[in-house]
Simulated assay, not measured.
Amino acid sequence: MLIISLTYVAPVEGVDALLDEHVRWLKRGHEAGHFIAWGRKVPRTGGVIFAHGDRAAVEALASTDPFVANGVAEVEVIEFVPTFAAEGLERLTQ
């Protein structure tokens, strides 16, 4: 599993201007089987996406996020090997 961590580097107004495009990008990634969960950080300093796939492919995909491509967020891809998942979250260990 890969964790895509986004950190905003621009005022939230710039982020909000790209939010609809970002959500469409997330939905396309989910439909293609790459993304399994996403959401905002609290406080609102960025977001997190759980992804499946080859690390290089996920890094390349992350760079196409409208937030990243338009310079309002920086991205870090973290590889995570879950060894346990609570009932209902078994897919996270696959």
Score class of each variant (00 low, 15 high):
residue 3 I to L: 15
residue 4 I to A: 04
residue 5 S to N: 14
residue 5 S to R: 15
residue 6 L to V: 05
residue 14 G to I: 01
residue 15 V to I: 12
residue 18 L to Y: 09
residue 19 L to T: 13
residue 20 D to F: 11
residue 20 D to Q: 15
residue 20 D to E: 15
residue 24 R to N: 13
residue 26 L to M: 14
residue 29 G to Q: 11
residue 30 H to N: 09
residue 30 H to A: 07
residue 32 A to R: 14
residue 38 W to G: 15
residue 41 K to W: 02
residue 42 V to H: 13
residue 43 P to E: 05
residue 45 T to H: 00
residue 45 T to C: 00
residue 45 T to L: 08
residue 46 G to P: 01
residue 46 G to I: 04
residue 51 A to E: 06
residue 51 A to H: 11
residue 51 A to W: 04
residue 52 H to R: 14
residue 53 G to D: 11
residue 54 D to T: 06
residue 55 R to A: 07
residue 56 A to Q: 14
residue 57 A to Q: 15
residue 58 V to H: 11
residue 59 E to V: 11
residue 59 E to P: 09
residue 60 A to N: 09
residue 61 L to E: 02
residue 61 L to F: 06
residue 62 A to D: 04
residue 63 S to W: 00
residue 65 D to V: 00
residue 66 P to V: 03
residue 70 N to K: 13
residue 71 G to Y: 05
residue 73 A to P: 02
residue 75 V to N: 03
residue 77 V to P: 09
residue 77 V to R: 06
residue 77 V to I: 15
residue 79 E to M: 00
residue 79 E to L: 00
residue 79 E to W: 05
residue 80 F to P: 01
residue 83 T to C: 05
residue 83 T to E: 13
residue 83 T to V: 14
residue 84 F to E: 09
residue 85 A to R: 03
residue 88 G to I: 07
residue 89 L to I: 05
residue 93 T to L: 03
